[in-house]
């Protein structure tokens, strides 16, 4: 299935753990330090670098771009490190996350509650993913270097549905 972002509730309903899809459109990178800072801003009543409502976060910290390139290698990082910060973002309307690895029960519960999806990118395939990215703009926390928040435009980015909006989990299905 080819999906144009942003995700709608209807499209999310159609996705099942194990489906292989491609996505095109806008997503935002954020990883450890950016999540910590966003959470601090939320607690302090400040607004976030982007409105998470309806959006997709890619857990990634890319390499610098070589001259003439849009971005350097840009594969997923381990999502579980963001678990502590994620339910609050899902409750604010975040619709989808792209990463790799297991999520906590709290995250899955928040996904089901808010009708969200967790998508897997291939860990260690950063060179391939860099080819799907057509534009990149640092929108916040530039001082964090590779951990800054970046707005990406992607075209036909290949992903696998790991956890769907009903809480079905590809890793658990694979282990059976």
């Amino acid at each position: 299935m080819n999906i144009t972002l942003p995700f709608t509730d209807e499209i999310i309903s159609q996705l099942h753990a194990g489906d292989r899809i491609t996505i095109s459109g806008t997503l935002y990178t954020a990883r450890d330090a950016a999540h910590k800072r966003m959470t601090q801003q939320l607690c302090g009543g400040a607004s976030l670098p982007f409105d998470p409502k309806g959006q997709t976060i890619y857990y990634a910290g890319p390499c610098p771009a070589k001259p003439g390139h849009v971005i350097g290698s840009c594969g997923p990082t381990t999502s579980g490190r963001m678990d502590a910060y994620t339910p609050a973002l899902l409750d604010l309307g975040l619709k989808a996350m792209v990463g790799k690895g297991q999520r906590s029960k709290e995250v899955v519960d928040a996904m089901v509650r808010n009708h969200c999806v967790y998508l897997g990118a291939i860990g260690g395939a950063g060179a391939l993913y860099s080819k799907c990215i057509t534009s990149m703009e640092v929108i916040a926390y530039e001082d964090l270097g590779p951990e800054s928040v970046k707005k990406l435009t992607v075209k036909d980015m290949p992903l696998t549905v790991i956890i769907d909006c009903r809480g079905n989990n590809l890793y658990d299905l694979a282990a059976k």
Partner: peptide, 19 residues
């Protein structure tokens, strides 16, 4: 895909993985 990724990295001289 991992082999394909390695081919792209080699051809473009970019890191196989961003980490």
């Amino acid at each position: 895909d991992l082999i394909k990724n390695a081919d792209v990295a080699k051809e473009e001289e970019i890191p196989i993985c961003q980490d």
